[in-house]
Every structure is written in C-alpha cells, then in structure tokens.
Simulated scan of single mutants.
Amino acid sequence: MSILLRTNKLSKSFKGKEVVSEVSMTIKKGEIYGFLGPNGAGKTTIMRMLTGLIQPTKGSIELFGSMMNRNASELMKRMGSIIEYPIFYDHLSAHKNLELHCEYMGCYEPKAISEALQLAGLSQTGNKPVKAFSLGMKQRLGIARAISTKPELLILDEPVNGMDPVGIRELRGLFTMLSKEYGMTLLISSHILQEIDLLADTIGVIHNGKLIEEVTMEQVRSEHADYIEVITTDGRLAAFVLEDKLGIVNFKMMEDHTLRVYDPRMTAAELARSLVLNDIGIESLTRKSISLEEHFVKWIQGGSDNG
C-alpha cells in the first residue's frame, strides 16, 4: 500500500508556545486513519496544517508524493475536509451551498452534488435554508460538501458531532463505503473511541502535541486480545493459586476481588475448577477483549509519565 500523506517533524507554535511538536505521521492510500487524543492535544491544529489553513512553524508535509509548500493550491483540490464546525451560507439551500463550493473548487458537476447529498442523507431537504437545519443536519451537510468534489483524501475533524446513535451508525457505514468502494483515504479525529475502534485501519495517538503512538488496529487487537476476568471471594488467595500452583504470572489484580488472566493457555473452565478446588468462591467469570479505550488510557498515561 503506497503512502499518500507523510509529515516530518511537523511543529507549530503560537506566541512562542509549541502546541504541536515534531509530529511524524504516515497515512497509506485507501486506509482509514483514526486520530485520537484528549481535548487540546493538537489534533485540530495538525489537521489545519494539513489542509493549508495555517502554516507549520517547522517540519514538512508530503501529500500525493509532492511537498505541500510547492504546489499547495493544486494539492488542495484533491482533498475534502471538515475542520471544527462547518460554516455555510445560512440563507441558501444545501444544494446551492454545494454548487458554490464546487464552483470555487473548479470541479462543478451537478450529478456529483446530488450524489453527495444523497450519501449524506440530505437528498430530501429541497429549498430549505441551512439556517433551519439542526446541528446534526449541518454536520451531514459539511460531509456532503467535503465529498462533493470526490477527493482522494478526506480529512474529518469530529465528524459525528451532534449526531444521534442512528446517525452515527449511518455515517460509519458511509465512511467505510467511501474507503472500500470509492478508494478514498480518510483521516478522522473523534473523541468517541468506539467509533474509531469500529472504523480505523490505523490509529495515531497524540498527547501534549506529540505523536506518542502510531499502530495498526490489527496490531492493537493482537496484543492480549482476550483475557478472563474473574471476581472471587478472596482475590489475594486467587492470585496465590494462579502463581504458585498453576504457574501463571501473566495476570493482573484489578481490585481486591477482581483478577484478569491474560495467559492464552488458561481456559475459563480450568480456572474455575482450580479456584473452586482451593475453596475460593467465584462471583463471576467472563472472557473479554481489551478495548481500544484501555489501550488509549495506557498510551496517554505512558505519554504523561514520559513527559
């Protein structure tokens, strides 16, 4: 898979304070790249640099095989984006807003506009002015505008803001379809970790302006993908049985009575039998998977510890 976007030590300072520090990220053609980080971590600032809204203080951006500072205007035509809250001509309809956008971008196609509105779930809005749209509808219109020019790269900053659960699910399906069927590459930031978990091929984690992790979701899922969580009447005795009698060291005490066993050789049935034979009561025993949220917290805490 070829590289579509690459940054090299990308940095940005405002009034002498560095808010993005030497970020080197790589996005491959056709993938969905999930951008994770706490509020204020630098996600939006990076996206604004990638879309040419602000200039980096240091570092470089390579896009579609070209350095962005050499022919940025031409590269922008191959990109669609929503950065922060989308702004429209409120007195105009959705269709008219997209017409003006496409004319500005130099790629006016009436069919593409209608298709974009249909994909975003806005084909029935007619002449209704945008000022009468709900927050969720405006977010959909922002997505329709971003895809109306059929971009090769789609950059979406918190695209499911203001959406209800049904709308979020519909947009998830849309983003997957754009990647798989249209061949678009997507960079999506979101604070809803479950959505990134369900969507992304690769994730980048940013904290305090630094990229602290860049990893494929396949790698994330392969690392201790499954574990057995057991709640017992005596957690300390259960830990002793695991380590001393069963030779299991790959486990973690979560609370006084809760343990997580990560050893792939241990079955739930064997664990239950061993605990019962040692007079340890079991309140619950379930097999679970480590969520992206748990990985995210681990990365952020590690990033904090490392400064």
Rank of each mutant, 00 (worst) to 15 (best):
E170A: 11
L171R: 05
L171W: 04
G173V: 04
G173Q: 14
F175H: 07
T176S: 12
M177N: 14
L178F: 09
L178Q: 02
L178G: 00
S179M: 13
E181R: 15
G183A: 07
T185F: 02
L187P: 03
I188S: 09
S189V: 04
S190G: 08
I192D: 10
L193E: 10
Q194A: 13
E195C: 02
I196N: 11
I196V: 15
D197S: 14
D197M: 01
D197K: 02
L199P: 06
A200Q: 11
A200W: 02
D201C: 01
I203F: 00
I206D: 09
I206T: 08
I206M: 12
H207G: 05
I212H: 11
E213W: 00
E213K: 15
E214T: 02
V215N: 08
T216H: 11
T216L: 03
M217S: 01
M217K: 15
Q219I: 05
Q219A: 07
R221I: 01
R221S: 11
S222L: 08
E223M: 09
E223Y: 03
A225G: 14
D226E: 15
Y227P: 04
V230F: 08
I231V: 09
T232K: 08
T232C: 12
T233K: 13
D234P: 08
R236P: 01
R236E: 14
L237I: 03
L237R: 05
A238M: 07
A238S: 14
A239R: 03
A239C: 10
F240W: 12
F240L: 10
V241C: 03
V241F: 12
V241T: 06
L242T: 02
L242I: 03
D244A: 12
D244P: 04
D244Q: 14
K245E: 15
G247I: 06
G247M: 06
I248C: 03
V249K: 11
N250F: 01
K252Q: 15
E255N: 11
E255Y: 11
D256C: 06
L259Q: 09
V261E: 10
V261P: 05
